[in-house]
Amino acid sequence: MLWVLAAVVALVAAVLGGAFAFQRRLVFLPGGGPLPAAGEVLPGGRDVALTTADGLRLAAWYFPVADARATVLVAPGNAGHRGLRAPLARALTARGLAVLLVDYRGFGGNPGAPTEAGLALDVRAAREFLVGAVGVPPERLLYLGESLGAAVAAELAVEHPPAGLVLRSPFTDLASVGARHYPFLPVRWLLRDEFATARHVARVAAPVTVVHGTADSVVPPEQSRAVAAAGRARTVEVPGADHNDPVLLDGPRLVDAIADLAP
């Protein structure tokens, strides 16, 4: 019996140790390159480089609009690359909004490895590019955070308030959504990254809108509703929509929610 108990303990330790060591490979699912030039994606698009506080140069796409109503900084979710957000940029520029599509460190061929602290530096570099290099007034800047990126955008909004903040399919915190998908693991004890969307959004002074689907199989709709309650946010629920359905990627309900916050 002692040998059996020792084997079970060793197996559990191996599983938990592996989950701890490789957790970021489960959290972050970056898409690589090569990617086309921004001008091939949308006429007038510009390939730009963002310099982070820790010295990384990150490739991004900037899509200017003449006499733009506002500029949208897009903080993406945990997967893919900026090429997948090109339809969103097309829809937003058609509404008179300039757009910056960011790829985090480790995404889209960028150097570095993603972490919560690293992503925070990446979006600050993006904001600095828009405010400093482009000259966008902070009061004409909107943030859009997608899923995991909602936590990134909300945390940025606490330090650098925008004109408005849109959170698409946000979870309350990473441990809560992780526990939904890995109920057999002590997720909250294992995670290195917190991504506490609800806690951040409660401190945001700018107007907030939460957009989510009612059939989301990745982020439970009740978590998005809890984020909205924490941020006293306007809520846009899309009936029957799952997490990655096109209607939530660049559909009219999402685009309208962003455009409605433009000053």
Rank of each mutant, 00 (worst) to 15 (best):
D103P: 09
Y143Q: 06
L144K: 04
L101M: 03
S217G: 11
N110H: 09
T235C: 00
E155T: 14
R199I: 00
T172R: 11
D193M: 07
A53K: 09
A37W: 04
A233W: 08
H243W: 06
A175V: 05
L148P: 03
G33S: 10
V74N: 02
P220L: 14
D216W: 06
W3N: 01
S176L: 11
V166Y: 07
L88D: 03
A126N: 01
A75K: 07
A14T: 15
T93P: 05
A205V: 10
L11Q: 02
F63E: 08
V15I: 15
G213R: 09
E159A: 15
E237T: 10
A151E: 14
A49G: 01
R140I: 01
A257E: 04
R82M: 02
H243P: 13
P87C: 01
V218P: 01
A126M: 04
E128H: 14
T209H: 09
L2K: 13
A59K: 14
D67S: 14
A53Q: 10
D245I: 05
P114F: 03
V8F: 15
P263D: 02
T115N: 12
L16V: 10
A14P: 06
A206L: 09
S176C: 00
G83I: 13
R25E: 14
D216C: 08
G145P: 10
E40F: 03
L29F: 02
G80N: 01
V15N: 10
Y104C: 14
P30Y: 15
P221I: 10
W189Q: 13
P76I: 11
S169C: 14
A215P: 08
T52D: 13
T214L: 07
L261M: 07
A262R: 04
L185N: 05
T71L: 02
T52M: 06
A175K: 05
R188W: 13
V4W: 13
V72Q: 09
A68I: 08
A175D: 07
T51M: 00
R253N: 00
A6E: 04
T52K: 05
P161E: 05
L185E: 11
P64M: 08
A226W: 05
E155R: 15
A202L: 01
A68V: 01
A229K: 11
A125Y: 04
V123L: 14
R82S: 10
E116W: 14
A133L: 05
A6C: 12
P30R: 09
F184R: 10
G149T: 02
R140Y: 02
V102C: 01
A94L: 02
P246F: 12
G108W: 11
P263N: 07
A259C: 11
G96Y: 10
T214C: 01
A70Y: 07
P34S: 05
